[in-house]
Design a protein around this nucleic acid. Structure first.
Lengths: 376, 376
DNA sequence: TTGTAGGCGTTATCAC
DNA sequence: GTGATAACGCCTACAA
């Protein structure tokens, strides 16, 4: 009942053994080296004293901090909390904790956070921020640090990764729009220094070609980041450049939220005038008006899988690398609807353009409404 | 250029001094004990070798981990990410990192996380989960742990706290509704084991009385937690029990989101039929339809202030306790509108009830509010 | 099966 | 001012 926490020596003394013996008895890996009787005595004493091994001392000795560095762009992006929870929950199950670092997609901050975590001797990293050709990747590889890439891929590095099959997701999005009669479909692409940006663009293009639609350059606008502001900017640009578009595939939900703003600004109705499909199915996105159709992937699971891959790597350094893809799934809500017959049948670009121009000008455009789609 | 990171001994050797001297030279607090010349030599050597003090070893010696335990209900609640970022940013500025623990408002999990963090020798705690009379508060107090309560208060404990003036916020919400002509105003109260729950209820009651309105028991429904599901349940209950209500003050935005679901289910239009005001102004709540009017407080700042209070306490144990309140602010958006003249003047509870009952029964009720009621 | 001894990297407390 | 020494709490060869 002293106020200072019990130490291994205290336990040993209470059990009338040497601290080394107590240590062995307490560690599952070495327990079999000790007689069953003394083991019991030690364990009982430890319990009685409320003994908790000092993780700091243990770390110093074993050079394991049981701490994982996690780099994400920004916790405020609702996409990440569920992923982080998946990570934390699985790590906790194995006695690890996560140190979360927000980089704001700023390479300077990223470097700072990374160095800071290395100084703290984290046992490994989960990187959700890696841009293509990022120097910390090379550095981590050289230092032979256990690293798992999350929602990112980087070829040529000895890192496991877990991500989403982005191509497939966007192909499904395009296919869905085509099945609704759309042919003039635009794309807001993510940053091309980020693997998801290029993969989703490729998925969009492949999807278009699979339906005999050759995507033209002016149907694609490139965002410089995944943010609402960029979505607004790109949405405006895309609608103005290609007024004939009746649908758009957007590389990220936040960008789609920005597009909603662009719709308001231009007086375009969604989904009556233009359909839109996002990517991520981030929390609360189903509460917008209209609820956003999007490509979902299992956020929580992404986190747990990343954690598993990293722990595998940490516990057994020559565990083979794994590249894991989770299958996405199209979630149909209310932001995409069938194309009105006139526009659909003709392929009459002029007529379509005219209608959309009217819409942009704020005039009421009599497009036939499809059945209202609701969740469930 | 060895592969093992440079240690203090390496630096000392390179500077031809004793490790102890090197330590003194490197630590700002003890640098003045060392000749300026050698200090420079040591520092230069450290830089050359890329020396980074091993925080684990340092912790073992100084019994300071420079790590803070942060307990929150759930990172997935969009309210918390900005708060946590405020915390982390300020802590980082002082060389601390945060360990985030999600308790899911489950007392068992809370205890686990708390113990886990104590075992890791965190230097202090920020608690955003404390329920009234929670045993870990007593335990922390007894162990003399530095603790700051965030968005919670607990009288009788030696802890600093930073929270919002919840009473004032709800009084303002009531005043706003009254100014719009509402008199039949309901309240969905938060859990009464949580300080925000009782404070906001009191604020509601005070606000009503300040306008000569005595809140009746059947105008208040108690949620058992801050969640969308509870909001749905309570919203339904409140509207059914008091069909005459024209407005409601809800203790939390998530609860308000749940109420939106209740409105849909009952065919009640918001804000035409019933006005609603939330609390927290959580991210993305302004994107709902209608955009939620709510009581805002500075989330990020709440985090930074909590961190400051805690660090004060850690660096100087007999720093006086501080109870800090941040002023909230009413954010008027689209979920509250003036009461139609008829309802306002009449107080004709029966008529109101009848209409609402029909709505609840699922009938299409042409609540073309002004017109129909005026006829009666 | 158990005890001994040494060290992980740092800092605090002595002496000189 | 600087050096020597010990200790923080734990683990692990190695010896017994």
């Amino acid at each position: 009942m002293s106020d200072r926490p019990a130490t291994l020596r205290d336990v040993a003394a209470a059990a009338r053994v040497h601290p080394a013996t107590a240590s062995r008895a307490l560690n599952p890996g070495t327990r079999l080296l000790v007689s069953e009787d003394t083991a019991r005595r030690v364990i009982e004493a430890a319990e009685r004293l409320g003994y908790r091994p000092n993780p700091v001392a243990r770390s110093l000795r074993t050079r394991r901090s049981h701490t994982i560095g996690v780099l994400i762009p920004d916790l405020n992006n609702p996409l990440f909390p569920p992923i982080v929870r998946g990570l934390e929950d699985l790590l906790a199950k194995h006695g690890y904790v996560a140190l979360i670092g927000n980089t704001d997609a700023d390479i300077t901050r990223e470097r700072m956070v990374f160095d800071q975590m290395r100084a703290r001797h984290v046992d490994g990293f989960v990187l959700a921020t890696a841009t293509l050709g990022n120097p910390i990747l090379a550095q981590a590889a050289e230092a032979n640090l256990p690293v798992v890439l999350m929602n990112r891929t980087a070829q040529g590095y000895p890192f496991s990764s877990v991500s989403v099959d982005n191509e497939q997701g966007e192909r499904a999005a395009v296919a869905h729009l085509v099945s609704l009669g759309h042919t003039r479909i635009g794309h807001i692409a993510g940053p091309q220094q980020i693997s998801t940006g290029v993969a989703r663009l490729r998925g969009f293009q492949d999807g278009m070609r699979a339906h005999g639609l050759e995507p033209r350059d002016d149907q694609i606008v490139y965002a410089t980041g995944y943010s609402i502001e960029e979505g607004l900017r790109c949405g405006l640009e895309l609608l103005r450049a290609r007024a004939g578009l009746t649908a758009m595939v957007v590389a990220n939900d936040l960008l789609a939220v920005g597009c909603y703003g662009a719709f308001d600004e231009l007086g375009v109705r969604c989904p009556e005038d233009v359909s839109i499909i996002g990517f991520n199915d981030m929390p609360f996105i189903d509460r917008l008006r209209p609820p956003l159709s999007t490509v979902r992937f299992p956020h929580y699971k992404l986190g747990t899988e990343a954690a598993k891959l990293l722990l595998e790597r940490i516990e057994d350094a020559d565990n083979p690398l794994k590249i894991l893809y989770l299958a996405p799934e199209l979630v149909v809500r209310g932001s995409a609807m069938p194309l009105a017959p006139a526009a659909a049948s003709g392929g009459d670009a002029l007529a379509g353009d005219a209608i959309a121009q009217d819409a942009i000008a704020g005039n009421a455009v009599p497009l036939r409404r499809g059945a209202q789609r609701r969740k469930r």
